[in-house]
Design a protein around this nucleic acid. Structure first.
Lengths: 352, 352
DNA sequence: TTGTAGGCGTTATCAT
DNA sequence: ATGATAACGCCTACAA
C-alpha cells in the first residue's frame, strides 16, 4: 500500500481581501437619505411604507449588494432559520440519501443545515446535540444511536423541537419518521418462504436498534403466517457493516448450521454475506438465497443483483424535515404526529 | 412499482416545552452576586480575575447548566466558528466521504459545518454561497461545478476565505486540494498498456471539469511513454453517472468501435460500462478490461471486483479543512499554498 | 408614513 | 480585581 504523500505546487498570489466590512442597514440608510429602520421595513416589505421610498431604498440596496446579516437577525428574532442534523454515519449511502432529502426541503424553505456525525457513538451524539443547541438551531433532526436517551432528554430540557430519523423509542414519546420495518421484514421473509425455504438465517442488527427489533417481529410474523415455528438458533446478531455479514456467515458455516436462505439487516451486511458464501462455494441463488435491506444504489450492481427491501430514503429525510419545520413554524399538517411510517417496497432481483 | 403511502400512528402526547428562556450571563451574575462581565471573564478564563470568585462563578454556571449563546458571540466577535461546505452531490459516496473528512477536523476544532448541495447546478452553487455568506461563515469549502466563476468571484468580493475541493481552475488563483489526476490516469493507462492493450477506450467526464482534463493528459502521457499515437475516436465524453457509462458503451458497440479495454472517469461510470459490456456478452477481463476511478466502497464488490485508482477521499476533505482553518486562524502550515495535491494509488483487482 | 429608542447575549474597552 | 458602558446588526415597539 502506497503511502499518500502531499505534493505542493506554487503559492497563492492573490492576497485574500482582508474581510472588507459588509454593508449594513445604516449604509443603505445614509445613501438613501432615510433612517435605517425605514430600510428595514422596505427590505422585509412591511405594510407601513411609501411605495416611492421603498423603491428608492431597494434600488440602493441592490446597488450596494446588501446582504442581511443572518447572525444579527437570529440574535434579535431568537430564531436562526437553521436546523441541526445529526446522523450516525455519513459514509453510509443510506444516511447520505436521507440528508439529501432533508437538504432539499430545507434549502427550499430558506433553512440552513448544520451537520454533525456521531459514528454511532453516544458520547459524540450528546456532544453534537449540545453544540447545536448552543448555536441556537430552531430544531434538530436526529438519528439516535439508541444506546441511551441523554441527547433526547437534553433537547427536551432545552425546549428544542426535534424529530427522529429512521429510528424511534417505544418508551419515549418523540416524533419519528420511520420505515415500516415490521412489514418490510415480513414481506421479505414471506417471499423466501413462498419459494420453499424453511430454514432462513437472519443476520439482524443489535437489539437496541428499533429497526432491528421491528424486523425481528416481521421475521416471526411471516413464520407464524405459514404455521412454521421459528428456530431461534437461526437468529444471529451482527454489526451493521460488511464485515459483520462476512463473519456471521463464516461462523454459521463452521458450526454447520443448516439454512438455505439468508435475510440480512442491511444491504451492506448482505454484501459481506454474499462474499463469504461465494468463497465457501455456494451458488446463488441456486444453493442459497440472499436478501438485503435498504436498497442502496449498489444493490443492483453486485453479482447476482441483490433482492432487497427498498426504503424511500430521500423521502424519509424530506418527510422528517417537513414535519419538523411544520412544528417549528406552527403549521398544522404533520406536526403533531408521533410516528410517521413510510411503507417499504419489496424488490426482487436475482439473489433469491 | 408500489407507491409509497404514509401511515400515521398515534399522536405526540407530551407537549414540547415552549422554548424556555436559556440562562444567560446575567442570570449567573445575579446568582453569584457579581457583574455579568466578571462572569464572562471567568468563563473565558481571562487573566484579570480572582481565583476565588472565578471558582464560585464557574460553580454557579455549572449548576444552572449554562451554555454560551454562540449566535450572540458570533455577532460580537465577527466570527462564527462555522464553515460552509458546498458539494456537488451528496448521494455520491465520493463526496459523502469527503464531507466525513471535513467533519472530523472541524468538530475536533470546535467548528460547525453548514452544508449545501448544488447537484452540479451553477445557479444553485451561487445561491448556496450567497446564503452561507449571509450566515457569516468564517470560510467556505467548495466543490465548484466549474461551469462559471460566479460563486468564486462572489467569495473574493466579500473577502471570505475559501478552498476548492477536488477541482481547481488553471486561470483563477484559488487554493485547491486535489488528487493528482494526471498521474492517476497515467498509471492506470500504463497498466493497461503493459497488459498488451493497444486500443483503450476512454470514457471521460466533461472537459470543463478539471479532473477530466488532467486525466486526459494522463491518458495521452501514458501513450506517449510507449510511443503509441492516440486514436482520438477512442476518447468519449460521458456524464459522470452510471447511465453515462452504459450509454457510451452501447453506442461504441453499435458503431463497432474496436477496443479491448475501457478506462472510465469514475467507478460509477465503470459500473454502467460493466453492465453494458456483460449484456453484450463480453467476458471480463478475458475479452475486455475495465478500469474505474475513485475507489468507492463498492468497487471491490462488483463482479468482477473493479480495478481502479484510489483517491484518499476523507484525507482530501480533512486536508482541505485544515488548510482553510489554518488560513482563517492565521496559522502558518498549509495556509498559503495554491494547489495541494494528494497522490493517488493504483488498485488492481480482477477487472483488468 | 417615518424616525427614535431599546434590547437580543456577548465580548471589548474603558474606568474604578 | 471588578464594574459600568458601548458596540455587533438587526427588529419591534412606540412616538412623532
Amino acid at each position: 500500500m502506497v503511502l499518500c504523500r502531499i505534493y505542493i505546487f506554487g503559492n497563492v498570489t492573490e492576497r485574500m481581501n482582508p474581510l472588507k466590512k459588509p454593508v449594513t442597514l445604516h449604509d443603505i440608510a445614509r445613501e438613501a437619505g432615510v433612517s435605517f429602520n425605514t430600510v428595514s421595513r422596505a427590505l422585509n416589505d412591511k405594510p407601513d411604507i411609501n411605495e416611492e421610498t421603498k423603491r428608492r431604498v431597494l434600488e440602493v440596496a441592490r446597488r450596494l449588494d446588501y446582504r442581511p446579516n443572518r447572525v444579527a437577525r437570529g440574535l434579535r428574532q431568537r430564531r436562526t432559520a437553521t436546523i441541526g442534523v445529526v446522523v450516525a454515519d455519513l459514509a453510509n449511502p443510506f444516511f447520505a440519501e436521507v440528508v439529501e432529502g432533508i437538504d432539499r426541503v430545507c434549502t427550499a424553505r430558506g433553512y440552513g443545515l448544520l451537520l454533525a456525525n456521531t459514528e454511532e457513538d453516544p458520547a459524540r451524539e450528546l456532544a453534537a446535540v449540545q453544540h447545536l443547541v448552543e448555536r441556537q438551531v430552531d430544531g434538530v433532526l436526529l438519528a439516535p444511536t439508541q444506546r441511551d436517551l441523554a441527547s433526547l432528554h437534553y433537547l427536551v430540557k432545552k425546549g428544542v423541537p426535534f424529530s427522529l430519523l429512521a429510528r424511534f423509542f417505544k418508551d419515549f414519546a418523540a416524533q419519528a419518521v420511520i420505515n415500516d420495518d415490521r412489514e418490510g421484514a415480513r414481506s421479505a421473509v414471506s417471499h423466501l418462504l413462498s419459494r420453499g425455504h424453511r430454514r432462513i438465517l437472519f443476520l439482524n442488527g443489535p437489539s437496541y436498534n428499533s429497526s432491528a427489533s421491528l424486523r425481528l417481529e416481521g421475521y416471526r410474523l411471516a413464520h407464524a403466517e405459514v404455521g412454521l415455528p421459528v428456530d431461534e438458533t437461526l437468529i444471529l446478531t451482527t454489526n451493521a457493516r460488511m464485515d459483520g455479514g462476512k463473519a456471521a456467515i463464516e461462523t454459521a458455516l463452521q458450526h454447520s448450521l443448516e439454512f438455505t436462505a439468508v435475510f440480512c439487516f442491511s444491504d451492506y451486511v448482505a454484501f459481506g454475506a454474499l462474499r463469504a458464501l461465494r468463497r465457501a462455494g455456494k451458488r446463488i441463488p441456486a444453493e442459497m438465497a440472499v436478501m438485503g435491506y435498504d436498497d442502496v444504489a449498489f444493490a443492483e450492481l453486485v453479482n447476482p443483483p441483490l433482492s432487497t427491501v427498498r426504503i424511500a430514503k430521500t423521502r424519509l429525510g424530506a418527510t422528517a424535515a417537513e414535519a419538523l419545520l411544520a412544528r417549528i413554524e406552527g403549521t398544522s399538517s404533520l406536526s403533531g404526529e408521533r410516528l410517521i411510517t413510510l411503507s417499504p417496497e419489496l424488490v426482487i432481483r436475482e439473489s433469491t
